[in-house]
Structures are given as C-alpha cells and as structure tokens.
Amino acid sequence: MSTAQSPSEPVHLFAALVSELHEEDTVAAVAATVADQGAAIMGDGAISIALGRRRRLVSEAASESGLLDVMSSQTDLCEGPALDVSEGASAVYCPDLAATELWPRWAAVAASHGWRSWFSVQLLDRGQNLFGVLSFAHPLADAVTPELADRMWTLSLHAAIALDRAQAQENLVRAAEAQGRVGLACGVLMERHNVTAEQAFNTLRRCSQDQQRKLRDVAADVLNDLQAGPKR
C-alpha cells in the first residue's frame, strides 16, 4: 500500500540526506546512504546504485538486498535499463517489466523478484562523465509518476555530487599513501646501497618502467622485502 506524504516531507528528507552525505567520506558509505535514504524519499519501492569499475558496471549498494542480485544480473545477461544508461541514455523508464520486450531475459528475472516498474538515471561527475547509474524499482506497474521522476532526478544530482567528492577524497588518500610508500622505499634503498635520494628514486622509477608496473607497487615490494628480512 502506498504511503501518503505531505508536500513538504520530501524537502525535509532531502535536507536530511544532504546533511548525512556531508558526514560520509568514502564511495561505499555515500552509496549506502543514498540507497537507504533515497528509498524513504521515493516512498515505496527500492533504490540501487551501480558504479563504473574498470569499464564494467558494478552494483555498489541497494536499499533491499535482493535488488543487488537483480542489478548484477543486468551485467551477467548483457541487457537491462542500467546498462542502457551506462551506454549513453540519460534515463530509461519501463512501466511494466512483466510486459516489456526490451530486455526479455533480464526483465523476466526482475519480474520474478517482484519488480514491475523500473527507472534508471545517469550519475555524472563534475566533468559530466558517467560515474554510475541510480535505479528505482517498484513492485507495481506504472508506479513512476511525474513527481517521483522529479524526485529521482533531484536524488541523482545529490548522489552524483557526493559520490564525486568521496571519490576525489579517496584518490587523495591513496595518493598520499602511495607517496609515503615511495618515500619509505627510497629510504631503504639509500641505507642499503649508500645512494642519494635522487638515485634511489631513479632506481624505483626504472624498475617501474621495466616491469610496466606502478611506482607505488614497486615501492611496496621493497618494503615487503624489508619486513620479510634476509633470506636464508
């Protein structure tokens, strides 16, 4: 049964979502918050988020656990609304998964899990590149009204901003950690081989180029060898 909401209630829910998103600093935490709070904003139904990982759409979070399997099956079956969005559509809406002929295999899977309406929209980063896909699933056909569609678009904007910020934060943390590892590895080489900092760094860089590996991974090998101790 649908839950009636006052006109002001979604505004308060969006305000609460924005406040909570400012407290999250990882992509996983942001995705989980958007999924959980987004479901409340939409009223009935469920929210899921899939993100692009190495040119593959990966299910990141969902307000209902079973929805993750339905989302993942789109990638497995190579068809579905989220995949259509990832391939260029700004949004895809299906009013009845039990009657559509657009994705015969995936739609059957989704309908078997109790979902009838489906709405997927793009998530864009600050450079307007596709970051992921936000989806809304509902157990009733024709469930996405113009009002709910507007809420989805607003939710997608907040989600995209928060996810982009969290991704940038994670990149900074990884870069700082990588820089720290390289510095420590240079120190090890300087002590072991009595070389300058520049010579130690050049050694790491040559190994990175010769092995076609990232500098941080070569540095990690040096530090792992140090922890392992001398070989017998």
Rank of each mutant, 00 (worst) to 15 (best):
N194E: 12
A50P: 03
A28G: 04
T196C: 06
D76C: 00
S63W: 02
P10Y: 10
A159Y: 07
A108H: 09
A197E: 13
Q227C: 05
N129M: 05
V218T: 02
T100Y: 08
R205M: 12
R56K: 14
Q209W: 08
Q122T: 12
A82L: 00
M1N: 09
R216C: 13
F119T: 00
A16S: 13
R216T: 05
E87M: 10
A61L: 06
Q167H: 11
R205N: 14
L223C: 06
A168Y: 03
A91L: 03
A111L: 04
P95H: 07
A185E: 09
S120P: 01
L134I: 09
A15R: 12
A110D: 04
L189K: 03
D142N: 15
E9K: 10
V34I: 07
T33W: 00
A162Q: 02
A35M: 06
D25C: 05
E60R: 15
D225H: 12
R55S: 14
I161P: 03
R192M: 07
R206N: 13
R216Y: 03
A160L: 00
A29L: 08
M190S: 09
A31C: 10
A159I: 02
L226S: 02
L67V: 11
L68D: 01
C207Y: 08
R213D: 01
S112L: 10
Q179I: 05
N202Q: 15
R126M: 10
H22I: 00
L157Y: 10
C207L: 15
Q74E: 15
M1P: 13
D164K: 08
I161W: 09
Q167F: 02
L17N: 06
A98K: 06
E24Y: 02
S73K: 06
R174Q: 14
V18W: 02
E79H: 05
L189Y: 01
Q227Y: 09
V218Y: 03
L13W: 07
D217R: 07
D164S: 15
V27A: 06
D76N: 07
D69S: 12
S19E: 14
L123R: 08
I41Q: 05
L223W: 06
R53L: 10
I161F: 09
R232Y: 08
Q211F: 12
S120L: 00
I49K: 01
V70W: 04
A28Q: 11
I161V: 13
D25T: 11
G180Q: 14
A35N: 04
E24F: 02
M152V: 14
L184K: 12
A61S: 12
L124Y: 09
N224P: 00
Q128N: 13
R213N: 04
D217Y: 00
N171Y: 06
V85D: 02
G45I: 00
N224M: 11
F201Y: 15
P95Y: 06
D210E: 15
T26V: 00
R56Q: 15
M190V: 02
A82Y: 00
D164G: 03
Q122V: 14
S48M: 01
V85K: 07
D84A: 15
K231F: 05
T100F: 08
